[in-house]
Design a protein around this nucleic acid. Sequence first.
DNA 1: AAAGATATCTTGACACCGCTCAGATAGCTG
DNA 2: CAGCTATCTGAGCGGTGTCAAGATATCTTT
Lengths: 209, 209
Amino acid sequence: MRDSQAAEARPYHHGDLSRALVDAARRLLEAEGPSALSLRAVAREAGVSPAAPYHHFKDKGELLEAVAHEGWDLLDAALAKAKAAAPSPREAMSNLGVAYVCFARENPALYRVMYDTARDKADLPDQMQESEDNAYCKVRDTMIEGGADPNDTHEIELATTAAWCSAHGLAEMAGFKQFEHIKAACGGEVPFLRAVFAHMGLFHQGGAD
Amino acid sequence: MRDSQAAEARPYHHGDLSRALVDAARRLLEAEGPSALSLRAVAREAGVSPAAPYHHFKDKGELLEAVAHEGWDLLDAALAKAKAAAPSPREAMSNLGVAYVCFARENPALYRVMYDTARDKADLPDQMQESEDNAYCKVRDTMIEGGADPNDTHEIELATTAAWCSAHGLAEMAGFKQFEHIKAACGGEVPFLRAVFAHMGLFHQGGAD
DNA sequence: AAAGATATCTTGACACCGCTCAGATAGCTG
DNA sequence: CAGCTATCTGAGCGGTGTCAAGATATCTTT
């Protein structure tokens, strides 16, 4: 059964099992959380035998990498959308931070897989370094548009790194119960995020000029 | 608690198996990493049967919690030392951030266990909320000593939260290979940390006055 | 179209895992 | 001493990641 028109793409025995496996994994991840994401469960969900995935992925880790890869793509898209919706570079910076944390909060299991696989390799995903339109570049470019000197590479890198660390740290912390009363005091989750970012000195609308 | 001189305390059948198990776990953690930390392996390392730990911990998670608890104690101690060694509150703030990240970098497996178990419960450990001399309090108090208004609870909490998120974010990021060339450009790991903190606007020696 | 090569999937197995339970053992209490 | 309770062992359950061998479907070559 060849979809599209030509017999290209990847219509193999099953159709496209790698695709189906990643989809099944994401379905499981959303429904049952990261701890339920076993290779056998994914195969079960996709309707194949426990050994089938090994013809498409070297091991479980490689399947998780594929899932994480999709996660980074989704994050890129979310940041692109936030950047596009901002009327000015300064608000863009602020919105990028909020969008980043919101993505993590709305996809906690996926976010965890993304960073767990990255930490296991001590290596951020390829998208982060190779592509010219990845999430890191979006933050960096927004900073330049906001007035940072594009020639001072070192400075730009440090600032972008600081922004990324801030967002990641907040993304992981925002899930803890301890912060619920502060969120309430701020008037909701997003105001809380903006307030914390403001106290970090970054993502602040009147920040880095 | 009668842990004075007599044969009280906890010298049971084995002597003190819970203690021995936590020690074995930390030994394994340091030697083999978090993925090798199975309950059976810990029991093996401690020289007991695979079922023995269940008389001291409800399940594997509870053993990991005990390990994490020790981690938070060590972190408290590291921060206390950094704070004590600083000549001024402002430098204390900066040193706290560096000490936090250094602790995470020197005990990566332990740090991971600490936050993994916390995230699983969406709950930072008891030490973080109950004690009056925990790591969170140290950051908060240092901020007050640095000139923050101790009466503005909301402000203090936000600032302390921002500081903690920054440090955690940087602690997790600093392990990635991608940052090695920036570290080199900064002249080492600690200068890199200080530079990133400076760009977050916190932990900066001339920061929050 | 027939035959062979190749990719895909299944079956079965191995070692390890978390966890439970019945029984053996050691220490405490009366 | 006996009785009791806490501690530990052993065997076993269902689950996991992974591999090797065989079955099956697709592609290639003739």
